[in-house]
Design a protein around this nucleic acid. Sequence first.
RNA 1: GGGUCCUUAGCUCAGUUGGUUAGAGCGCUACGUUGACAUCGUAGAGGUCGAUGGUUCGAAUCCAUUAGGACCCA
Length: 887
Amino acid sequence: MKDKRGRTSPYDPKTTEARWYEYWESKGFFRADRLSGHPPHTIMMPPPNVTGALHMGHALQDTVQDALTRMRRMQGREALWMPGKDHAGIATQNVVERALKEEEKKSRFDLGREAFIEKVWEWVDEYGDRILQQKRRLGDSCDWGRERFTMDPGYVKAVQTVFVKLYEAGLIYRGHYLVNWCPKDRTALSDEEVDNVEHDGFLWHIRYPLADGSGHITVATTRPETMLGDVAVAVNPKDERYTDLVNKQVELPLTGRNIPVIADHYVQQEFGTGVLKITPGHDKNDFEVGKRHKLEIFSVIAEDGTLTEECGPYAGIDRFEARERIVKDLGAGGLLEKIEPYKSTVPVSQRSKAIVEPLLSRQWFVKMKPLAEPAITAVRDGTIKFYPRRWENEYFRWLEGIRDWCISRQLWWGHRIPVWYYTDSRGEIDEARGFVVSIKQPKSGMVQEEDVLDTWFSSWLFPFATLGWPEEDPETQADLGYFHPTDVLVSGYDILFFWIARMIMASLYFTGQVPYRDIFITGMIKDKLGRWMSKSLGNGIDPLELIEEYGADAVRFYLTILCAQGQDIRLDPAGFQMGRNFSNKIWNAFNVFGRFIEPGKEYRRTRSIEELELVERWMLTRLAECIESVEGALVRYRLNEAANLLYTTFRSDYCDWYLELVKPQSGSTMSEESIALAIEIYEQLIQLLHPFMPFITEELWHRLRPRAEGEACMVSRWPVASDERDTVGAEQFTFLQEAVTSIRHLRSRYGVAPGKEIEVTLSVSEEQLGLTEVMIAHTEYFTKLARVERLHVGVDLPKPPQSTSTVVGSAVVYVQGMVDPAEERERLTKDLSQKEDFLFRVQKKLQNEKFISRAPAKVVELERQKEADAKAEIKKLRDSLAAWSET
RNA sequence: GGGUCCUUAGCUCAGUUGGUUAGAGCGCUACGUUGACAUCGUAGAGGUCGAUGGUUCGAAUCCAUUAGGACCCA
């Protein structure tokens, strides 16, 4: 650990991380076994997409999950962190299609369904594990032996069983509805997969001539290309401008078709001209209007986004090109009254970014209301709790307004819907004969539904499908019974509806249990400027590069520090230096006593707390308090608080004060007893840090003491806050700290050379009499920390000649040998006025009768104490100042 | 249009159920290589907690209004 100059070299994560990960895994520490006899603690990892690569969101969420898992494991729970990966229908299909095009210049249609799926499997086999390998670099302590893929045979069975059961319960139905259609991916989408994006468009005012030749009516629309599918124009029944025209016929331009003018309250009079074209085949609202008025439905846009055969001269043209042509043709016919700029929202596919087309098609749906109700109750009655609470509102809002879920996708990669159709003599599907819902082919000759299921239709089963459901053998039953319900789900709010809420519905319906009791919602990671990280912006930060540069522990620790109660995180990669610096500090601190450790020797403290040094008693007290606070922070999922507490305790308490005082003078060595306590405290601190920084703590834990084969920090027993405390000693030490700080302050102000030794007089007040002895006994502390050569302590000592002073509570610290009256007066005057301001505020409070009568006694007592302290300090300051005025 | 969140030191952010003389990291200033650590230490500068009004003995924290920003839903 030393370089040529005899200096300790910085901590190098590369030499430890891979080694310890292999060690843990080879010892089976990640495995969770229900026969252990320990109470379980389960976390389900949100399964990453097989196509994915590790990004900062994973790094953050895994850090949280791993910290919770490791802490619980150390606390004696049988901690299962269940890993898996998601087949991610569209995403994966797209990736493989792209690869196919690049490598073989082929489309999936060139290969055909079977061969294409074969290709996808090859791809999954080759690259699917990449992200899970990357997660190992972070130190994730998941039970890899249980890893599940949402396309595993067992998982497939779970998905199909769920489909069949929901169908049999009347919760799945098939029907022709207007669905969100993505012309790019050529599949239906659920409402959740569609974003409404505002864009700058136009409002076209188009004249529809009246069939009787008595003029025209002007329609305002944002989508002229769909006019070919118009079946009516509509006005508001209250709109007097158009009352006469209702029930008349108008001629649909460019088609010659006659369509009626209808009255419907859906029409807003203020919008455009107050006349809407009704196109039930391509607009959800129009669809409803059409239903009310029993109008026909025309589809004029095909699945690929081009206009259909029925569109005459426009057939086969893409919808946006058709828009331009139609507008042009209308203009040429004198039917275009005006065009005005107009901001409207367009539905966009979250994945492909293509504009979604409402299209009439035959799809499969889940009736959600019956599933949603118990899920609402579970959160309402507190069975499930959100951290932070505010996400409950969002959850309720969605579930209370829930709409049926379109689960069929016109893709090839995914769970094929377990529905079978009869065929006719030519082998063609004969829909007229209906269908059979079944996992197995019900009859030879029957063919399976071509559509696959929405990816989320498999992910929503994750908490129980990964634990063996629906197998009924006793082994898996027992596992499910033991690990489910899980304890906490850690996830981002981006998949609150897609996944979190749906899991609750599925678990409740199929297992009768909630999937988890707590939901910890993390913030999302943004870039330095607050923008989402995305490939197209190129502003992503690769966690693996960060690990390479700073080490996994540093990355994890800094992410934990940032992870405050669901707030989004603006990430500045330079910030990870903090984590690295802290790692290094931990590493070097060990060296202070570590270099005196005799190999193979076991150091155990024999002294009781009464026999310890003042600083040791103080440190033990601080440690116990720290453990309590960390504990409290962790149960409330305040990981950032826990990390902060440990940071301060380690850095300022342990390193800056404790180690500075117990480390030996140059040339001498540390006593065995002293080493033993340093080890004891250090050991607990690194155990507490282990959940956040597993690698470095494991390494140091082994250097600390001789360890038996198979022991490890990660499976060591979590420290318990000890009763071995000395609050009186701790207070005395705190006073000493303040005195030292003020001496250092004076040294600094007077520019005293660091090596120069000084003489100090400490004048305490009568009430502090007890301190005198303690301070004298610890002159050495002053020497070590502030280079005080001689220390005089007494009650109300006079100001030594040629000295400067500062006030610490009701005590005065005089530092001899440095004097500058002007400087002194200035500083003391400033301190005095500050203190007087403070006293004024406190007294104002105390003079307020209402405060005395209404505030809790404890608070009043505290203020009284403040008043007394401030008065004592002011007195000392005045005295000092007076002494200066005399000279 | 409905809803949620954010606004605290130059920057990025913490701040339990209202009671601290409002904190951290980075940055900045001065000094410093004393046998753990310059990926460090010591000392320091820097904030009327977006604005206004209210509730309260007491407000960064609760309520209302308002300004700016982010997001979700329609």
